[in-house]
């Protein structure tokens, strides 16, 4: 049977990995190529690169990064951040990324999902969803622009909408849990899982290896994503997988 995936996420700005990476032995801790090989060797199942460049130049650099990473990495990777048009998707996919992730642009113009899915196939189109609990709504609300702008979308409605439009996977981030390091948002993850038929990646809140076991034992998430916990070496992909294996969760 299929295994649960562990996905480290790397933030890239102007072609460099940012967020204090503390790996001993790396010649250049900001080099996306070197870091992605490092995670590959550790047993990461996939990688996500999030381009947080603000400039046009930075975005162009990202394409070079994608090309270089694709040249060395023998596992799949997704690129998100600043993908607004079909052309942007084409550029990133042709450079060698396996999937693109759409967030704000998809909320602004949901047709973008259908266009991408029709052209490249659903398996290339990930929709990233940032959700935050809303008391008044008694559910989670979707945010865009890196969590700065609220929308009228309720999370399960939006998840159904993106899948119906052809998204092949959902990268679901809990804004409430993000950075808190006390575990994934299990109820949010399961709510979205129940709403859609495509794989769901849980994100936001990983602070210990046990949190990964939790999310796989208590929800139907297909994958779990984390950034700082791996970058700051609080745990490693290897340790997480070892723990999952001991608990009887299938991993590669």
């Amino acid at each position: 049977m299929i295994t649960k995936r562990i996905i480290p996420c790397l933030d890239v700005k102007e072609g460099r990995v940012v967020k204090g990476i503390q790996f001993v032995g790396l010649r250049d801790a900001g080099d996306p190529v070197e870091l992605s090989s490092f995670y590959d060797e550790q047993g990461a199942d996939e990688l996500v690169f999030l381009d947080i460049s603000a400039s046009h130049e930075g975005r162009k650099t990202m394409v070079d990064v994608v090309r270089e990473v694709a040249g060395t990495l023998a596992i799949p990777f997704t690129v998100g951040g600043g993908i607004n048009t079909l052309d942007d998707m084409r550029t990133i996919l042709r450079a060698g990324a396996d999937k693109v992730s759409l967030n704000t642009a998809a909320v602004k113009r949901p047709e973008l999902i259908s266009e991408g899915a029709d052209y490249f196939g659903s398996q290339c189109i990930v929709t990233a969803i940032d959700a935050k609990f809303d008391e008044a709504l008694a559910s989670w609300r979707i945010y865009t622009h890196g969590g700065r702008t609220s929308t009228d979308w309720e999370v399960t409605d939006w998840a159904k909408e993106v899948v119906q439009r052809g998204a092949g996977e959902i990268l679901l981030t809990s804004m409430d849990q993000d950075g808190a390091k006390n575990g994934f948002d299990l109820s949010l993850t399961e709510a979205v899982n129940q709403a859609v038929s495509v794989p769901v990646i849980a994100s936001g809140g990983a602070g210990a290896k046990e949190h990964f076991t939790d999310v796989f034992e208590k929800t139907n998430a297909d994958a779990a994503l984390a950034a700082s916990i791996f970058h700051y070496k609080e745990t490693s992909v290897e340790e997480v997988k070892k723990h999952l294996r001991e608990k009887g969760v299938r991993v590669r």
Binding site: M1, I2, T3, K4, R5, D45, S122, Q123, G168, E169, S197, V198, P199, D222, A223, R252
Partner: peptide, 19 residues
Amino acid sequence: PGKTKEGTAYKVPHMGWNK
């Protein structure tokens, strides 16, 4: 089909690492 003979729903696409 996205559903087993017993009626249990499963994810489509088949995406990820399998043995």
